[in-house]
């Protein structure tokens, strides 16, 4: 009897909620885009009569998976991503009926290599970073397990202190971007690795593998943790997102990469080499079904949010150049279809 009543109660609740129309935008996705997306959502909730969207921090991959699971009130309307959606993911989407998607690039995120202010500032090239962190490096024409223990061994101009770099684990989008923008870029400069090109797998391993002998320390997904460890250990370098450097400028300094320092201006102008685009994707089938979708996208794609003087710049988002911003705003408001 008790069980029957319970089952009935659960069923009633379930049906009641399924029948109830959703009046709130649901967003999932990248933890890197989360601080920006939430800021826009909060502004949107405050300045319009729509409810503040609910934003889950699930990671880029997890977000796209949820986003692509189907069309309907039970599925999210927008997903944030710190990388571009993959062709395979678009296929999964299409299989589940999510065919019309609008892509919006919101700006850039700089990835910095920083250390404590009490130590001297590093001036590194991408090749030096590769030599310090790759699992295998070219020595005398051959690939060998990374022999470098101190920075001075790589280049006489660098300080004579042990290589100790704290960075994100492989599950993190920041790590993917770091590998793509620093390691892979640099490994094209070594003839020994370029020679491997015929063997795609070996080439990939040589370019993407990070050393595991203790010089590179996986410090977890939490960038604040790296910041804390760096301020306590002046010998270590850390890899994390620009907004954390911006907020902790009293304790940390960003290393120069190829002679350019990671400042807002230098990243925005594209001179600083390690920055990646950030995106969000809109499910077009939900536009018109969920109130406020069009308005939310318009708020995100407005100058007062993603412009150089907008409130997102204050949160550490690096704006796109003016022309790109204009084109992107056009694409966002007209809900153009995603082209791979």
């Amino acid at each position: 009897m008790l069980k029957k009543t319970l089952a009935a109660a659960v069923a009633t609740v379930a049906f009641a909620s399924a029948a109830e129309a959703r009046d709130q935008i649901r967003i999932v996705g990248s933890s890197t885009v989360y601080p920006f997306s939430t800021t826009v959502a909060e502004q949107f909730g405050k300045s319009t009569s729509y409810k503040t969207p609910v934003i889950e921090s699930t990671g880029s991959g997890g977000g796209i998976k949820l986003f692509c699971a189907g069309v309907g009130l039970g599925h999210p309307d927008i997903t944030n991503s710190s990388r571009r959606i993959k062709a395979s993911e678009v296929e999964t989407c299409a299989k589940n009926g999510v065919t019309a998607i609008t892509e919006v690039k919101i700006g850039y995120d700089g990835i910095v290599i920083a250390n404590a202010k009490t130590a001297s500032r590093f001036d590194l090239s991408r090749e030096q970073v590769f030599l310090a962190l790759a699992k295998q490096v070219p020595v005398d024409g051959k690939l060998v397990a990374n022999p470098y223990k101190t920075w001075k061994q790589i280049d006489a101009k660098l300080p004579d202190q042990p290589i100790e770099v704290l960075g994100p684990p492989p599950t993190s989008g920041t790590r993917d971007a770091f590998v793509e923008l620093v390691m892979e870029e640099a490994c094209g400069k070594f003839p020994e690795i370029v020679a491997l090109k015929s063997d795609a797998a070996a080439h990939k391993t040589a370019c993407q593998s990070v050393r595991e002998d203790g010089a590179f320390i996986e410090a977890g997904e939490n960038d604040n943790l790296i910041v804390q460890k760096l301020s306590g250990n002046p010998k270590a370098l850390g890899i994390f997102g620009y907004s954390f450097l911006d907020q902790n400028a009293d304790k940390l300094q960003g290393s120069l990469i190829n002679g350019v320092q990671p400042s807002f201006e230098e990243i925005a102008s594209g001179k600083y080499p390690v920055s990646r685009p950030l995106f969000f994707y809109v499910k077009k089938a939900h536009v018109g079904q969920i109130p406020g979708m069009r308005e939310f996208v318009a708020e995100f794609a407005s100058e007062k949010s993603w412009g150089p003087d907008g409130y997102l710049a204050d949160k550490g988002l690096i704006p796109m150049p003016t022309a790109e911003r204009k084109a992107m705003a056009e694409q966002a408001t007209s809900m153009a279809d995603l082209k791979m």
């Binding site: 609740v13 909620s17 109830e20 709130q24 999932v28 989360y34 997306s37 939430t38 959502a41 909060e42 909730g45 409810k51 503040t52 609910v54 934003i55 889950e56 921090s57 699930t58």
Partner: peptide, 20 residues
Amino acid sequence: LLMIGMVAFIVDIPAGFLDP
């Protein structure tokens, strides 16, 4: 709670058992 979407940015204070 991560799996059922409770790790989320929610501004409004929930007023019932079904509110986010």
